[in-house]
Computed example of a mutant assay.
Amino acid sequence: MSEVIITPNKPIAIELEPGTYYRCACGKSTNQPFCSGAHHGTGFSPIAFEVKEKKVVHLCNCGKSAHAPYCDGSHNK
Results as ranks from 00 to 15, higher is better:
Cys71Gln: 03
Phe44Pro: 00
Thr30Asn: 09
Val4Leu: 14
Phe49Arg: 06
Val51Ile: 15
Gly43Lys: 10
Pro11Arg: 00
Phe49Met: 08
Asn61Glu: 06
Cys71Ala: 12
Lys10Ile: 07
Asn9Cys: 06
Ser29Gly: 07
Pro69Ser: 14
Tyr70Trp: 14
Leu16Pro: 01
Thr7Asp: 12
Ala25Lys: 00
Tyr22Thr: 00
Ala25Arg: 02
Cys62Asp: 02
Ile5Lys: 12
Pro69Glu: 10
Tyr22Gly: 01
Lys54Pro: 01
Pro33His: 10
Asn31Tyr: 09
His40Asn: 11
Val56Tyr: 02
Lys52His: 14
Pro69Phe: 07
Lys10Trp: 04
Ala66Lys: 15
Ile6Tyr: 09
Arg23Glu: 02
Pro69Trp: 03
Cys24Asn: 00
Glu15Pro: 05
Pro69Gln: 11
Gly19Ala: 08
Ile5Gln: 11
Ile6Leu: 12
Ile6Phe: 08
Tyr22Ile: 05
Ile14Asp: 05
Tyr21Lys: 04
Glu3Leu: 13
Glu17Asn: 12
Leu16Trp: 01
Phe44Ser: 01
Lys77Cys: 15
Glu53Ser: 13
Pro18Asp: 07
Cys24Val: 00
Glu17Phe: 05
Gly43Glu: 05
Glu17Trp: 07
Arg23Tyr: 06
Ala68Leu: 14
Phe44Lys: 00
Gly63Tyr: 04
Tyr70Thr: 05
Lys77Pro: 12
Ala38Gln: 05
Ala38His: 01
Asn9Gln: 13
Asn31Val: 09
Cys35Val: 01
Cys62Trp: 01
Lys77Phe: 15
Val56Leu: 02
Ile14Ser: 06
Ala48Glu: 14
Met1Leu: 12
Thr30Glu: 10
Pro18Lys: 03
Tyr21Leu: 05
Glu53Trp: 12
Thr30Val: 12
His40Lys: 13
Asn31Asp: 15
Ala66Met: 14
His40Leu: 10
Asn31Gly: 09
Ala13Trp: 04
Ala66Val: 12
Pro33Ala: 07
Thr7Glu: 12
Pro8Glu: 14
Ser2His: 11
Ile47Tyr: 03
Met1Asp: 07
Ile47Gly: 00
Ser29Glu: 03
Gly37Phe: 02
Lys54Cys: 11
Lys54His: 09
Pro8Val: 14
Ser2Tyr: 11
Gln32Val: 12
Gly73Asp: 11
Asn76Pro: 07
Val57Cys: 10
Gly43Asn: 06
Val51Thr: 07
Thr30Tyr: 09
Glu53Asn: 06
Thr7Ser: 11
Ala13Lys: 09
Thr20Ile: 12
Gly41Asn: 02
Glu17Ile: 11
His39Trp: 01
Lys54Leu: 11
Leu59Tyr: 03
Asn31Ala: 14
Pro33Gly: 10
Glu15Val: 11
Glu50Asp: 15
Ser45Trp: 06
Cys62Asn: 04
Gly37Arg: 03
Ile6Pro: 05
Phe34Thr: 04
Phe49Ser: 05
Lys77Tyr: 15
Asp72Leu: 09
Pro18Val: 06
Ser36Gln: 06
Gly73Trp: 06
Cys24Gln: 00
Ser2Asn: 14
Ser29Pro: 01
Cys60Tyr: 00
Phe34Leu: 07
Tyr21Asn: 03
Thr30Pro: 02
Val4Ile: 15
Pro18Asn: 05
Met1Lys: 13
Ser45Asn: 13
Cys26Lys: 00
Thr42Pro: 00
Lys55His: 12
Ile5Val: 13
